[in-house]
Design a protein around this nucleic acid. Structure first.
Length: 1079
RNA sequence: AGGCUAGUGGCACAGCUUGGUUAGCGCGCUCGGCUGAUAACCGGGAGGUCAUGGGUUCGAAUCCCAUCUAGCCUACCA
């Protein structure tokens, strides 16, 4: 089968659909994997995207990096595991389902809908979303094992996470503790640090007067932005090191940190200046200064002097519970020392509510304060809050302020704009609550985690060394319990009587331990609510015990993917083959997410990091550098791009536009560049197939004897092999931007703009000319190599070209381009030749530039050009590639020289030196130099170092030269020297030039007629006697170039033409020329 | 408040590791050319205080310090 002529234009939609259909029907992905089965393993783990239903450009980028890299690895012979992963549990889905089912609260779920139904809905929703996203990835041409993915809702996956918790418990890393944690009042659950986002929020900023017990009109000034925590206030902290002042103002005394006094109370002394104009000019204006003291400092004490003082609780009437504490516990409502108190904001006296702040909690524990938290899981005050019972915390801010104002305990009320934490999904501002939660004691394994980070190879380096290291270093214990429904149930059964824990590590274990009969599927059994019903026996006291009701933080779900996706430890074989992973890659948001959760659970389960190399990639931003978000309305969807330009263009663009670890500004105009590149590749392909199919070219039937390879042929073959080599290096380093930019430059510069241009003439030759076949062969080789480099990145268009170019002529060829090995021919690389070609190109560019500036048409030949360069290697390159230069510069001869001897020089005196030296004799020398032949003077100076003018000896410093080009020359610079073009038009040149002019017009007319490239024509030309004489000697050339069977050139008078022929009248260099053609 | 990253013509980027001609490329703009790859190509031109300020050096886009701006991450912003 021969090479087929390609479709004239690049239709991405048609090609990509066709290729994807081919992959599906032929199960190409599977076959490629089988092909590499025996190769060395390269293990990769897909970070599971959350099943939100829609992928965005960031997700697309992520998968494109993975896909391109893995396709490359596969071509290098590695056996891969390309299992897709899906993150399918968690609050985001619960929130969406709540929305769909119009659910308002947890109570709704538990009492009206039922957990079973709610969980079912969540499962259904997650699976629907997964399917939708699969299609989107598929459209991108991402090759992953979509049929056998790992899913966090898979019971076999989930039991692995149970095992991890069991491991944690064995190492005493699993603890239940009362602590103050972040809490989402809407979702009614604890949140981990990773689940909190920050937004600008406006909150009250109030200064409260806490009356000092037993001292009339004396107050501690305290600042807070959360009035709703005041009902839980149990103490005030001061820093024992700081100085505090007693200030008397408006009849009251305030205690405040000295450094913050003026910030809060204002300037202590105000100065008013009154100017009294002077009465006469001799006197100066009088200024009267009046000092007004706003308040007075009575005394200064150290913070530690305040410690132990008591204050009257400010909401004593509203909250009876508070007064119980007051009477029972000594430290309640007193001043306590705290090193955490700083002077950045506030008053230096910190309102302390152990139930509402992590620091406060610690202080409370230290001094034996009760952990008083009169707020329920819905964010509403409880009975303990007395007057405020049942009200939502944040909404009660105003009421509390009002109550305090009524008691005259408010010093000042303002608002403040600051960043405040919100729930990552429902955007509700979080509150701090003291609750009992389950924790992984990350603080105990932190050192090990930090060690492991150092062993991992990070790309870029700062991702691990800076960012991630910092995050882990600052990590607190990980709150893993969630008071929700759709998640992995925490496998802890706790005995209410003796407190004994039983942590179940697998489904089998659960079934064995269960006291109930189990008659539901594994998938149901391992989810709520079924697992809640399973009762087991307490190992210690024998009591029948139930599971704690919480589910796991979803970050655990994905954190355990390394072994859970391999069903370890229930299954061992695959685990041993693939764990730990050679490579993972995710966005920089995953520093605190997946990179962290895997490392934590990995150290707990395996004692090491599950990954060995990490590429941390950037974010896709809009063209202004802003994050794409629905609220800004600047989101560009991958589908939109694919529809306009296709998946290959998008894929290439994503890897080309920025360094992988930098953020990527998505700019539509830039996409056009890539689109253009692919179009040009396609044009080269069309160009190739047009001639190759015409000549029935079959590369497999060519032997060395059939072809002649010119320098440019060897050059392009060398270049393409260099490309393969260089791109491999870049891809190995994960420098996708460098790899794609090299490919881009190769297609545009080397292949299209240079090589195709060089060989254009040769493709016009008919018959099996070895020179033409040499061009075909080289072009073919270059194209096939090129697509094999391109195919990991733009897999569709490469496959399409491969199908025709390779499979079309070789039935034995692998059935997909993705089955090729990544190879290059080191022997074919000739760096010396590549360097020489660079010189030749520059010379040609320079000569064209020179002609262009002189408005000497390139179409007209010149008799010679002279390349002048001091660099011998450059001159050598030029003579070696002389034919190319001749052809492309349209010159009959290429001369080289170290110096251009046709330059004429005019000598002139160096006035700066000669002026002072000669004085009166200057005139003579000026005249003499002007009259003399500059060239002669230069020669003499070069030879002797001196020259004598009018009897005066001058040295080379004293004479300057202007160089002058002869009229017939134009010149232009290139990197290594100058090119001089001889533009003298001889008769011969004029003849050839006019022939070219004529040819150009006939070609133009052929095009008008839309003739086939190979069609023959008959041409009549009528023109003046003079013009006829110029072109007749060129008849043969003209006929050949325009494929004319006959060419009749006549004087105007003799003319008689057939009116049916296509006839056009032209003006060529002032001559009237009438051309008729017929085919 | 701390950490990380970045700031180079209108736009998007390279160069910075290892200091050294006239800071480079593409797009865009503009003027001109070419015409059998033509939705292509070639040439000329305008357009840059390399964020700012210091320092080191014979010499700084590049190294150092400080500042500003932006993005991200973090924080016990009470």
């Amino acid at each position: 089968m021969p090479i087929k002529e390609a479709e004239k234009s690049y239709d991405h939609d048609k090609i990509e659909k066709k290729v994807q259909k081919f992959w599906k029907e032929e199960e190409t992905f599977k076959k490629v994997n089988e092909l590499r089965e025996k190769g060395p393993r390269y293990s990769f783990l897909d970070g599971p995207p959350y099943c939100s239903g829609k992928i965005h450009l960031g997700t697309a980028w992520n998968k494109v990096i993975k896909d391109s890299y893995l396709r490359y690895k596969s071509m290098n012979g590695f056996s891969l595991r390309r299992q897709a992963g899906w993150d399918m549990h968690g609050l985001p889905i619960e929130n969406k389902v709540e929305h769909l089912m119009d659910i308002q609260s947890k109570q709704d779920i538990e009492e009206n809908i039922g957990i079973a139904k709610f969980v079912d809905k969540c499962r259904e929703f997650a699976i629907e979303n997964k399917i939708a996203m699969e299609q989107q990835f598929d459209q991108l041409g991402v090759w992953m094992d979509w049929d056998d993915p790992y899913m966090t809702l898979d019971p076999k996956y989930m039991e692995s996470s149970w095992w991890t918790l069991k491991r944690a418990n064995e190492q005493d890393l699993l603890v239940n503790d009362q602590r103050v944690i972040s809490w989402c009042p809407h979702c009614g659950t604890a949140l981990a640090a990773a689940e909190i986002e920050y937004e600008e929020k406006v909150d009250p900023s109030i200064f409260i007067k806490f009356p000092v017990t037993g001292e009339e009109n004396t107050y501690f000034l305290v600042w807070t932005t959360t009035p709703w925590t005041l009902p839980a206030n149990l103490a005030i902290c001061v820093n024992p090191e700081f100085d505090y002042v007693y200030v008397s103002k408006d009849g009251e005394t305030y205690i405040i940190a000295e450094n913050l006094m003026e910030t809060v109370l204002g300037k202590q002394v105000k100065i008013r200046r009154t100017k009294i104009p002077a009465e006469s000019e001799d006197e100066e204006d009088k200024v009267i200064e009046e000092k007004e003291v706003m308040y007075e400092v009575i005394k200064t004490v150290k913070g530690e002097d305040l410690v132990g003082m008591a204050y009257d609780y400010i909401l004593a009437d509203e909250i009876p519970k508070q007064m119980e504490f007051d009477s029972e516990i000594e430290k309640v409502h007193t001043i306590l020392p705290g090193d955490h108190v700083e002077l950045g904001e506030g008053t230096g006296l910190v309102h302390t509510a152990p139930g509402h702040g992590p620091d406060d909690f610690e202080v409370g524990q230290k001094f034996g304060l009760p952990i008083f938290c009169p707020v329920g899981e819905d964010g509403c005050f409880t009975e303990d809050a007395g007057k405020y019972d049942g009200k939502f915390t944040k909404e009660e801010n105003d009421q509390i302020i009002e109550d305090l104002q009524a008691k005259n305990l408010m010093y000042r009320v303002e608002t403040i704009e600051h960043r405040y934490g919100v729930c990552w999904r429902c955007k509700t501002p979080i509150i701090y609550r003291a609750t009992k939660q389950w924790f992984l004691k990350v603080t105990d394994i932190k050192d090990k985690m930090l060690d492991e980070i150092d062993k991992v190879e990070w790309v870029p380096k700062w991702a691990g060394e800076g960012r991630f290291h910092d995050w882990v270093d600052n990590a607190r214990d990980w709150t893993i319990s969630r008071q929700r429904y759709w998640g992995i149930p925490i496998p802890i059964w706790e005995c209410p009587d003796c407190g004994e824990l039983k942590v179940i590590g697998s489904l089998d274990e659960l079934k064995q331990e269960s006291l109930n009969e189990i008659n539901v599927s594994d998938s149901e059994l391992i989810h709520r609510p079924y697992v809640d019903e399973v009762e087991v026996k307490c190992d210690k006291c024998g009591a029948t015990i139930k599971r704690i009701p919480d589910v796991l933080d979803v970050w655990i779900d994905s954190g355990v993917a390394g072994w859970a996706s391999l069903y370890y430890p229930e299954e061992k074989e695959k685990f041993e083959d693939w764990f730990p992973y050679d490579f993972i890659t995710e966005g920089h948001d995953q520093t605190r997410g997946w990179f962290y959760s895997q490392l934590g659970t990995g150290v707990i389960s395996m004692g090491k990091s599950p990954y060995q190399k990490v590429l941390m990639h950037g974010f896709v931003l809009d063209e202004n550098g802003n994050k794409m978000s629905k609220s800004l309305g600047n989101v560009v969807s991958p589908e939109e791009v694919i529809e306009k330009y296709g998946a290959d263009v998008l894929r290439f663009y994503l890897l080309w536009a920025s360094k992988p670890w930098d953020d990527l500004k998505f700019v539509w105009d830039e996409l056009l560049n890539v689109n253009k590149m692919i179009n040009i590749l396609w044009n080269v392909y069309v160009f190739s197939t047009t001639y190759m199919s015409l000549d029935n070219f079959n590369p497999n039937e060519i032997t060395e004897d059939d072809i002649i390879l010119r320098s440019e042929d060897k050059w392009i073959i060398s270049r393409v092999n260099s490309l393969v080599k260089d791109v491999a290096e870049d891809l190995d380093n994960l420098f996708f931007h460098k790899a794609t930019r090299k490919i881009y430059d190769f297609i545009l510069d080397d292949l299209s703009r240079w090589y195709v241009r060089l060989i254009r003439g040769r493709t016009w030759v008919e018959s099996d000319d070895p020179d033409k076949l040499g061009a075909y062969y080289s072009l073919y080789t270059a194209l096939v190599k090129l697509i094999s480099v391109l195919c990991p990145i733009a897999p569709h268009v490469s496959e399409e070209i491969y199908e025709n170019l390779v499979k079309g002529v070789n039935p034995e060829a692998p059935e997909s381009i993705h089955m090729l090995n990544w190879e290059y021919d080191a022997e074919a690389i000739d760096e010396d030749l590549e360097a020489k070609m660079d010189v030749a190109r520059q010379v040609i560019d320079a000569s064209i530039r020179a002609r262009d500036m002189a408005q000497y048409k390139l179409r007209w030949p010149v008799s010679d050009i002279t390349v002048v360069s001091p660099d011998e290697n450059a001159l050598k390159a030029i003579s070696e590639l002389e034919d190319i230069i001749k052809d492309q510069s349209n010159t009959k001869e290429v001369l080289t020289a170290a110096e251009f001897d046709k330059l004429s020089f005019n000598a002139k005196p160096n006035l700066k030196i000669l002026g002072p030296k000669l004085k009166g004799d200057m005139g003579k020398v000026v005249k003499g130099l002007k009259a003399a032949d500059g060239n002669q003077i230069k020669a003499e100076l070069d030879a002797n170092g001196t020259v004598t003018i009018e009897g005066i000896e001058l040295n080379s410093e004293e004479v300057l030269f202007d160089s002058e080009l002869p009229d017939d020359f134009v010149s232009s610079e290139f990197d290594g020297g100058n090119v001089f073009v001889n533009t003298n038009v001889t008769l011969e040149i004029r003849q050839e030039a006019m022939a070219r002019e004529l040819i150009r017009r006939i070609q133009d007319m052929r095009k008008d007629l839309d003739l086939d490239v190979e069609a023959n024509i008959n041409v009549d030309v009528e023109t003046s006697q003079e013009f006829k004489d110029l072109i007749v000697p060129q008849s043969e050339v003209i006929s050949h170039e325009v494929r004319a069977n006959s060419l009749i050139i006549t004087d105007t008078e003799e003319c008689s033409k057939d009116s049916k022929d296509y006839t056009k009248e032209w003006d060529i260099e002032g001559e009237k020329v009438i051309i008729s053609i017929k085919n």
